[in-house]
């Protein structure tokens, strides 16, 4: 394997990791602040992607499509928070799992009802299409590079939001003692809706970005959601930093595993056997990573409570 291919795959892994971060950040915030496990977070990815595809088809503007994905998913998030999720904060995890599973059914079938079963396509705008040449002569798609940059900027923004702003202080206070901040006069239910909508907006953005690489279809969110769970288990619940590190670890492991493992098995197997063993193992690599973290540090790399 050449050095160029290696770097390209590393960047692909980073790009995938950044996508996962956008999903995992919302999940981990919602869990950290409200103690809620939200399976319907994947549906919000889908909502964002469909909103983007619709607006893009109507206006032809990619930037408007991105804005629609964030606004659409955040609005959907705020609505389900006020209608359903709010009633679940005091319930046990089983009720939360079931109610949000019910939400997935409603969202998925509802979307299928409105948009049909055929995938939609979201095109990469011309000014982001094509490759760029990176230092060292590496050709890399500009769109994917943009995703990496935007994702890292959002991560930085999120860190600032949590560490430096008033709302961030309230979020952190909500994580450690929700009765106390309610007693101090913070409108806790508005804060919860806000945090939920923030997470939903990030998921929607992830949906729009992924939608342009893959296709926009019903059920596109759940595979990402489950990987985001793996990220959170690795990074530790409630930790944005853990989510970022976990995302990049999972993204890079997944992408590099698909390349390196077959190459590794080719050293002592014939080509087709190496290919099938390697790719079968590669699909399992991130879960093996998760198992290792569980054995060594059950509460995750940056997690407090297990």
């Amino acid at each position: 394997m050449s050095f160029l291919l290696f770097v390209e795959q590393l960047l692909n892994g980073l790009q995938f990791g950044v996508m996962l971060f956008l999903t995992a950040a919302g999940l981990t915030l919602v869990f950290g602040v409200m103690g809620l496990i939200n399976l319907a977070h994947g549906s919000l990815i889908m909502v964002g992607a469909f909103a983007a595809a619709t607006v893009s088809a109507a206006t032809g503007s990619y930037l408007l499509a991105i804005a629609a994905s964030i606004v659409g998913a955040a609005a959907a998030g705020a609505i389900i928070e006020m209608l359903v999720i709010r009633r679940l904060y005091k319930r046990d995890h089983l009720d939360q799992v079931l109610a949000t599973f019910a939400l997935i059914l409603i969202f998925s079938e509802g979307t299928r009802y409105v948009f049909g079963s055929f995938p939609l396509y979201l095109n990469i705008p011309p000014y982001l299409a094509g490759p760029v040449t990176l230092p060292g002569g590496i050709e890399y798609p500009l769109y994917r590079l943009t995703i990496i940059v935007v994702g890292l900027l959002i991560a930085a923004g999120l860190f600032l939001l949590i560490a430096r702003t008033r709302i961030g202080i309230q979020i952190r206070a909500g994580e450690s003692d929700r009765e106390m901040i309610a007693a101090l006069g913070v409108d806790i239910s508005r804060l919860y809706t806000l945090v939920f909508a923030l997470g939903a907006g990030l998921a929607g953005l992830a949906g729009a970005m992924i939608g342009a690489i893959q296709s926009v279809q019903v059920g596109m969110g759940e595979p990402i959601l489950i990987l985001a769970f793996v990220v959170i288990v690795i990074g530790g619940i409630g930790s944005i930093k853990g989510a970022l590190i976990g995302s990049i670890l999972v993204g890079v492991t997944d992408t590099m595993g698909g390349i390196l493992l077959p190459a590794f098995f080719r050293l002592f197997m014939d080509n087709s056997a190496a290919m099938s063993t390697g790719s079968a193992l590669a699909t399992m690599s991130i879960y093996i990573l998760m198992a290792l973290v569980l054995i060594l540090k059950p509460s995750g790399l940056y997690g407090g409570k297990a």
Binding site: F31, I37, H93, V97, P223, I226, F229, V230, I232, V233, I237, S276, S279, A280, T283, M284, Y287, M290, A291, L294, I295, P298, S299, A306
Partner: peptide, 27 residues
């Protein structure tokens, strides 16, 4: 492995291991 944790971790981990076997079967 999963019972080393509890609560919401347990849910996510069992889900993840299930997904691992799903992808394994596909490949």
């Amino acid at each position: 492995l999963s019972l080393r944790t509890s609560g919401v971790y347990f849910i996510m981990i069992t889900l993840a291991f299930g997904q691992m076997l799903y992808y394994f079967a596909i490949s």
